[in-house]
Design a protein around this nucleic acid. Structure first.
Lengths: 126, 126
DNA sequence: CGATGTACCATCACAACACATGGAACAAGT
DNA sequence: ACTTGTTCCATGTGTTGTGATGGTACATCG
C-alpha cells in the first residue's frame, strides 16, 4: 500500500488520497478488516497536515469504505469494495443537472440560479 | 413615477430598480401601455450606468412586466400586473430547497454540494 | 442626424468559498 | 504515559462570481 501525492496536480490533496485508497480497495490491495495507517502517521509519511488526512478519512467513512474505531485505529469496511463503486457525487451531479436544466428552460438567469442556490444553502443551516 | 436609488442599501441597484417598477405596476401607478423612460434617460436621471438600467429592463422584459419595442421605446406589458405577482425565483427556491435537503439527508457535505453545483453550472454552458 | 434597445469589448472592488496549514484540547482505551 | 479519532480555535492563498462601471458599435425608424 503505497500512496503517492502529487502537489503539482490541481486535484485537491484529500481527493487524491481518497482516490488512491478506493483504488487500492477495488484492486484488492486493501481488504476488509485491514488496518489503515493512523491519521498522524500518514500525515507524517506524506508530509501533509493531519487535517488533510482527517478530511479524507472522514469522507471515506461516510461512504462506508473505511471504519474508524476510535483509539483502536481505522480499518477497511466490510463492504468496502461494494461501496467504493457507489459514487455519491455522481448522483448529486445528475440531480443538479436536471434541476438546473429545468431552470434554464424557464429562462432563469445563471446569476439568479446561483443566488437562489446560495440562499437555499444558507437558509437550511440546521 | 419617481424612482429612488439608495447606494448605501446592500441590495443591488438593478434589483432596487426592478422592485420599484414592479411595485409601481402593482400599485397602479404604471399601467399597461405606459411608456417607460429610455435606458439612457433613466441612467442619466439616476446617475447610474446605462448597463445597470439595461440589466433591470432585460429582466423585467423576461418576466413580461415590460415590453421593449426597439427604437420606439419601452412600455408596460399588457399583463404586467399579473406577471408582477408571479415570482419565478420563489419556484426556483422551492426546487432547490427540496434538492439540497435530499443531498444533506444523504450525508453529502456542503462543500461537495457547492462544488457539484458549480460543475453543473459550468458544464451545461450550451 | 438623433434616438431607441442591444451586443460586444474591457476593467475594478468586493465577497464567498475551497484548500491547506498550524496549534491546542478532549474522551477513550491500552 | 501513549495513541486513537475528533473538535475547536485560527490564518493565508487562490479561485470564482457578482455588481457596477466605461467605451464602442450595430440596425432600426423618425
Amino acid at each position: 500500500m503505497e500512496i503517492i501525492i502529487d502537489i503539482d496536480d490541481p486535484t485537491p490533496l484529500f481527493s487524491q488520497l481518497i482516490e488512491q485508497i478506493k483504488n487500492a480497495v477495488i484492486a484488492g490491495k486493501l481488504n476488509p478488516g485491514d488496518a489503515l495507517p493512523s491519521i498522524r502517521q500518514l500525515a507524517n509519511d506524506l508530509e501533509l497536515n493531519s487535517k488533510t488526512i482527517a478530511k479524507a478519512y472522514r469522507l471515506l467513512e461516510r461512504d462506508a469504505v473505511i471504519q474508524a474505531k476510535g483509539y483502536r485505529g481505522t480499518f477497511v469496511h466490510p463492504d468496502a469494495q461494494k461501496n467504493c463503486t457507489i459514487d455519491l457525487n455522481e448522483w448529486v451531479n445528475e440531480q443538479l443537472n436536471k434541476t438546473i436544466a429545468s431552470f434554464r428552460d424557464a429562462g432563469v438567469t445563471d446569476s439568479e440560479i446561483r443566488i437562489a442556490f446560495s440562499n437555499a444553502m444558507n437558509n437550511q443551516k440546521n
